[in-house]
Structure formats: structure tokens, C-alpha cells
Write a protein that binds this DNA or RNA. Structure first.
Length: 567
DNA sequence: CGTGTCTGCCC
DNA sequence: ATTCTGC
DNA sequence: GCAGAATGGGCAGACACG
């Protein structure tokens, strides 16, 4: 113990023990206490690493770097360690429902045959994982899996479990920012609201935890909104229809179109514009057209505003499906070319900062007014989100119908005097989307689950009828209670006709009613269509046959003709 | 050099 | 994105 | 009500492989 303090390092084993304790309890307060105790005894030099690791991260989320490892790469690494092929490892994976547990078993077996083991320190594990992230170019897959295999080989079984889960970006210990925040509060005797505040404006746990330890409340409070640094977005909960929406946000309320595009936070400073996504990634390079339009049509020196970027067809002036906008989001090459082909219009709806003044605590209607003052509307480039303010249900309903006719997702209903509240909170604003007519589809395959669904077939391949045969139209994995997962697994198991890896094919017996947001064209599924956000509505044991592809085509066409009515 | 696989990130 | 679950 | 877990389609980029 003394030596550790001297050298200012900490063994990864200690972290692995903490992970295991966290894994064992479902009680959030216990988790908080375990983490708080650990943070208190973590040397300052390891604190930044430890807090990231506790959150399952290798880089702070504000960093542009990513690890580039997921399940297939882990399989390769485990295959290297054991000398077994990936299929054999996959079979163990299927049984355990967790690659971390597979790695643990692999290392346990190996340890019996090897002797000396050096201790891994937290900073060493971090260093190796970050080095793995940085391999690129030819043979980088080899290098990545090789390094991971070596790291796992030098780990104790329990360490291997959590290193693997960290590499996969999924610790599965029931710890997220909420519990980490409360642990920081307890460990360093600071106020919850200040920790949350600092996180909302920086999203960097490493920076935050050091600040809490070194400067306490004062330091945390001083973290402020800074133009050019993205802040966490306000998120809206779902309401069941307009009437329910009014109940939730009060009447009158601001009602706006919910556009089907990409959320963008725009920062203006010294003539420069920076664009951030919902996850605070910088997409400025991807949208030079948007940057240009904003510079031209927004008059301010410094401001932060938010909007939804929607793709449209430049000739017909029709909105195009989200899939098309998707082509632009991760572009790195020929950006100008694609910008011409797939133009976007930004519908701005909120203003967070203007000329030195933080507007977050101002009521929404004032923020909107500020927005209206500085944005000069330019059709099909920068416009204000279409809005009405009303407390009248009929008027609101008509506005909602109009949004749907124009093929947008629905409406947002916003409390007029609500502040801008990062994250998701009750009472500030809601989204209202329609429930479309569901489809009856038959389960033709399934995939064994992970983690708490490890014992169940937990994702289901769905098919429709295409003449005399069946055609796949996607997968569904939500909308079921645990009881229903159990039941479906029991009913599907006897129907299995073929197994490959974690995937099975089953006789087409079980018909389910499936809800979704939209029917999309699919390059993946044999029906040529797929569902956006599929979920189980109910079982249709009264039915033996799924819907026909013709019905799906019809619904798809109806969607399209609706969208063509707009403009 | 074309195609398939994997990963991360939009929704 | 959606949905379910434990606290 | 909050936080966390587990899962959907599809896109571009990066790399492996033949």
C-alpha cells in the first residue's frame, strides 16, 4: 500500500475488484458508495484514468479518437490466445452471453500453464488500449488484435473480463454518469448540481473529477458555457398524443414541426462556425453548405443556436428520407460534390447564447424571439422551425396533421417559460409522433442475446409473404417484457432448423404484430424493405400467415405520396 | 483493384 | 432511435 | 421519474482478401 502511494500508481486488479463489487449489487446507492470510496483512495495521477474506466471509456467523449474494436476483433484476439478458431469461441460466447466472461475463462485456463505474471497498473492498461486505438493502415487489424491478445494474456482472469468489456465499450455493471456523478459528490464533498453543471458544459469526466477534487464547488461552478465548446443537448420525452402533450407541458404551449433530420448545435465566433451533433461530435467539415448559409443569414458576432438539418431534393423541393441525409454525416471525401447532390435546409428552433449573454435560463419564448431577431430566413437554406403557440387542442391537432402530411415525424410541444435544460427532464417539452398501422410478420430466425438477455433468444428475424415464399424485412428486439423473452425462447427452441454461431433459423410459426415509425427501402433484406424502429406490439397467435409484401408496398407508397403533397 | 467485413455513429 | 426494469 | 441496459436500420470509411 505504501509503495503504491510512493510510485503513484494503482493496480488494475483494484479496479477489477471494484467492477466486480458493482456487478454484484443492483442498488444504486451501494454502487455510489463503492465508487466514492474508490475515488477517495485513488492517487491523483490515476484519477483521470480511473474515472474514464469507471464510465467504460478510454478517451473522454469529447475526444475524436475511437478504439476501433468490437466483438469480431475480440473474437480474433481470443482465437489468438487459445489457438482455437473463431467459430469455437463463438459457441462459448453463445453459451455465456458475454465476451468478457469468455475472455475470463480463456485466461483462467491459460494461467494454469504459465508461471510468472507481472501486475498490470491502471495507467498501463490505459496506455495499451489507447495504443491499440492508434494503429492504422495495412495490417492494423493484426496489430490491434495482437496487442489486445497480449494484454489479455498478461491479465488475471477477472482483469481480462473487464478489459474485454471495456474494449467492447460495454461494462454492464449498471454504472453510468448519474451514479458516477453522485459518487463524485460523496467522495469530494461537492454539490450534485455543480457536478451536473460542469458535465453539461464540458462532458469530460477526466477534467471534471480533477476539478472536483482540486477546486471543489467553486471550480465546478466556474465551468461555464463557452462558444466553440459543445454543451449537452436538451432532450424531449415522448407524449401520447396532443392532449397528453398539453397535460405534460401546460397550455398554451409552443408547438413546432418535428423534422426528420439531424440535430445540429451551431456555434458562431469571430466569423467562424462550428457544427456539433447530438453526441457532440464535430461535423463542420461535413456541411460546408450549412456553414456558408449560416454565415450569410445569421447576423451575430457570437452565438449558439440549434436546429434540425433536413435533406431535400433540389429540383422537386421535396424532403428526402433520412437515409439520404445519412450519406453526408460521416463523409470525408468529395464533400462538396455530395453537398450539391444532397442539399440540406436547417430549421432552427432554439438559441442558447447571444453576444456574451447566456440564454439558458431565459424562458423558451424569449429564446425563440432572440432567434427570430438574428436569423434572416432564406428558403431552403436557413429557416425557423415552423411554430404555432396555442392552447387550443383542435388547432394543435390540425398543426400536427399538417406536419404529418408534409412527411415530418410529428410535433414538439414546448413549455413557453421553460429554461434550456440539458438532458432529458419531465415537464420542459415533449415530442408527439403517430402510431402507424402495424404489420403482422412471422418470426423466421433469432439471435441469442447478451448480458441480461444472455439466456434468451432476444432478437427476432421477421418475414412477410412474397407470393408463395417468405421474404425477410428486418429484426425486432424491443417491446417484450422479460417474461415474454422467456416465453418466446421456449416456443422458438423446438422450431430451430439450423444454427450458425449465435444465429438460428426457425420454422415460420410465430406471428407477431410489429409497430414501427416508417417503412424504408432496404439494401439488406430480401423483401427490399425494412422497418425503422421496429418493436413488438403483441403476439398474433390467432394468425398463421404474415402480411403480404404487397401490403407493405402499399403502405410505403402511401408514405411517399403524402410527402409529395408538401412543398 | 473490386468486394466483403467490421466499426462507429446518425436516427 | 424504442422499450423495459430496478430503485 | 431517473438511469441504465439491450436492442433496431443504414450510412461511410477503413481494412482484409482474393
Amino acid at each position: 500500500m505504501k509503495q503504491k502511494t510512493l510510485t503513484n500508481t494503482m493496480d488494475y486488479q483494484e479496479l477489477a475488484d471494484v467492477y466486480e463489487q458493482l456487478d454484484k449489487t443492483t442498488k444504486n446507492l451501494e454502487k455510489r458508495d463503492i465508487i466514492a470510496d474508490f475515488l477517495k483512495r485513488t492517487p491523483k495521477s490515476e484519477l483521470a484514468n480511473v474515472i474514464l474506466f469507471l464510465n467504460g471509456e478510454i478517451f473522454p467523449s469529447v475526444s475524436e479518437e475511437v478504439l476501433g474494436i468490437a466483438d469480431k476483433m475480440v473474437l480474433k484476439a481470443l482465437s489468438k490466445i487459445t489457438g482455437k478458431n473463431e467459430n469455437a469461441i463463438t459457441n462459448v460466447w453463445k453459451e455465456k452471453g458475454d465476451l468478457g466472461l469468455v475472455a475470463e475463462q480463456v485466461v483462467k485456463k491459460k494461467t494454469q500453464t504459465t508461471l510468472s505474471q507481472e501486475k498490470l497498473t491502471i495507467s498501463y492498461v490505459m496506455e495499451i488500449l489507447r495504443a491499440i486505438a492508434r494503429f492504422e493502415g495495412e495490417n492494423s487489424t493484426q496489430k490491434k488484435t495482437g496487442s489486445l491478445a497480449k494484454l489479455l494474456s498478461s491479465a488475471k482472469p477477472k482483469e481480462a473480463r473487464y478489459i474485454t468489456r471495456t474494449a467492447l465499450g460495454d461494462l454492464r455493471i449498471g454504472v453510468g454518469f448519474g451514479i458516477i456523478r453522485d459518487a463524485i459528490v460523496k467522495a469530494f464533498n461537492v454539490e450534485k448540481e455543480h457536478v451536473q453543471h460542469a458535465y453539461d458544459f464540458r462532458s469530460d469526466l477526466s477534467e471534471l473529477v480533477l476539478l472536483a477534487k482540486e477546486s471543489g464547488n467553486k471550480g465546478l461552478k466556474n465551468v461555464d458555457l463557452k462558444v466553440g465548446k459543445p454543451l449537452r443537448l436538451m432532450l424531449y420525452q415522448k407524449a401520447q398524443g396532443i392532449s397528453n402533450g398539453f397535460t405534460r407541458v401546460g397550455a398554451p404551449a409552443a408547438i413546432e414541426y418535428k423534422y426528420d433530420g439531424m440535430r445540429v448545435q451551431c456555434h458562431f465566433k469571430k466569423g467562424e462556425v462550428t457544427l456539433f451533433t447530438r453526441r457532440l461530435d464535430d461535423v463542420t467539415k461535413q456541411f460546408p453548405d450549412l456553414v456558408g448559409a449560416l454565415k450569410e443569414h445569421v447576423s451575430c458576432k457570437e452565438c449558439i443556436l440549434e436546429g434540425e438539418a433536413v435533406a431535400y431534393n433540389s429540383k422537386t423541393k421535396e424532403y428526402v428520407p433520412f437515409q439520404i441525409l445519412g450519406k453526408r454525416i460521416k463523409r470525408k471525401h468529395r464533400i462538396d460534390e455530395i453537398a450539391k447532390k444532397i442539399p440540406v435546409v436547417l430549421y432552427v428552433f432554439d438559441m442558447l447564447y447571444l453576444e456574451g449573454k447566456n440564454l439558458l435560463l431565459e424562458p423558451f419564448k424569449k429564446r425563440r424571439a432572440a432567434l427570430e431577431r438574428i436569423v434572416r430566413k432564406k428558403a431552403w437554406q436557413v429557416e425557423l422551425a415552423k411554430q404555432v403557440i396555442t392552447g387550443n387542442e383542435d388547432k394543435a391537432q390540425r398543426f400536427y396533421n399538417e406536419a404529418l402530411e408534409k412527411h415530418q415525424e410529428g410535433v414538439m410541444m414546448k413549455k413557453l417559460d421553460a429554461q434550456y435544460q440539458p438532458g432529458s427532464r419531465v415537464g420542459f417539452g415533449v415530442k408527439v409522433k403517430p402510431i402507424l398501422e402495424p404489420l403482422d410478420l412471422v418470426i423466421t430466425g433469432a439471435i441469442w442475446g447478451e448480458g441480461k438477455r444472455g439466456k434468451w433468444l432476444s432478437s427476432y428475424v421477421l418475414s412477410c409473404k412474397k407470393g408463395d415464399v417468405l421474404a425477410e424485412i428486418g429484426k425486432m428486439a424491443t417491446g417484450l417484457s422479460e417474461e415474454q423473452f422467456e416465453e418466446v425462447t421456449k416456443r422458438l427452441e423446438p422450431l430451430i432448423t439450423k444454427t450458425s454461431g449465435k444465429r438460428v433459423e426457425v420454422q415460420p410459426k410465430l406471428v407477431v404484430e410489429v409497430g414501427y415509425e416508417e417503412i424504408q427501402k432496404s439494401p439488406t433484406y430480401s423483401s427490399g424493405f425494412a422497418l425503422r424502429f421496429p418493436r413488438l406490439i403483441r403476439f398474433r397467435d390467432d394468425k398463421e400467415e404474415p402480411d403480404d409484401l404487397e401490403r407493405i408496398k402499399r403502405i410505403y407508397q402511401d408514405q411517399k405520396s403524402l410527402s409529395q403533397k408538401q412543398a
